[in-house]
Amino acid sequence: MSTKTTDVSSTTDLVDLLKAQHGRIRDLFDEVMHSEGRERKEAFRALVRLLAVHETAEEEIVHPVARRLPGGDGIVDDRLAEEREAKELLSELDGMDTDDPAFLKSIDKLRIDVLTHARAEERYEFDRLRDQFSPVQLKGFAAAVRAAEATAPTRP
């Protein structure tokens, strides 16, 4: 994933927005993994919410646009399969006690799966979107993502 830090709230470029959200997701996984008690529970709730709205916006806006790329159907189908698996594990975790020792093992698996998925999106989908669409188009897509996130469910 990109190490470039971009402020999620101020970026108007679709790719920068999504990469910044991936960075925030990575940070929230770290908070969950390295905290306990109430702090872990709060970090996990924030992670669940961000993952839910982020993936909804990708499914509604980003993936349909990416299907227009050469080979886009295959790229998107692979990402959707990864997202389905992650959603299933997230749903299981959402019902667990964050202090349960099994929670850490499962959240670590989810972390690996989600971060691997995010790297694949950035490499195979996002960079190609930046190459194929103009800055004005990417700005419009970012606005559409923000609108989708505003009405997205906040749970898996």
Score class of each variant (00 low, 15 high):
S2V: 02
S2M: 07
K4M: 13
T6L: 09
S9C: 05
T11V: 12
T11F: 09
T11C: 10
D13L: 15
L14G: 02
L14N: 04
D16A: 10
D16Y: 01
D16T: 00
L18D: 03
K19T: 00
K19W: 00
K19N: 01
A20F: 11
A20C: 07
Q21E: 15
H22I: 13
R24P: 01
I25T: 07
L28F: 01
L28G: 00
L28K: 00
E31S: 12
V32E: 02
V32H: 08
H34S: 13
H34M: 14
E36A: 09
R38Q: 09
E42F: 00
A43W: 07
A43Y: 05
R45Q: 05
L47Y: 10
V48W: 12
R49L: 11
L50R: 01
L50Y: 00
A52L: 09
A52M: 12
A52Y: 11
A52K: 08
A52G: 13
V53E: 13
V53W: 04
T56F: 13
E58Q: 08
E59T: 07
I61W: 08
V62F: 06
P64F: 14
V65H: 04
P70M: 08
G71R: 03
G72P: 15
G74L: 03
G74A: 06
I75Y: 02
I75L: 10
V76R: 06
R79E: 15
E83Y: 01
R84H: 12
E88A: 12
S91W: 02
E92D: 09
L93N: 03
L93F: 11
G95K: 04
M96T: 03
D97Q: 04
D99C: 00
D99T: 05
D100M: 01
F103A: 13
L104E: 04
K105Q: 13
S106K: 14
K109V: 15
K109E: 14
L110F: 08
L110P: 06
L110D: 06
D113I: 06
D113M: 15
V114W: 07
T116N: 06
H117L: 03
R119K: 13
A120P: 11
A120G: 12
A120D: 14
E122C: 04
Y124Q: 12
E125R: 07
F126Y: 15
D127A: 14
D127R: 12
D131F: 10
D131K: 12
Q132A: 15
F133V: 10
S134P: 09
V136L: 10
V136G: 05
L138E: 03
G140S: 03
G140F: 05
F141D: 03
A142P: 10
V145A: 07
V145F: 10
R146G: 00
A148T: 08
A150F: 07
P153K: 03
P156T: 02
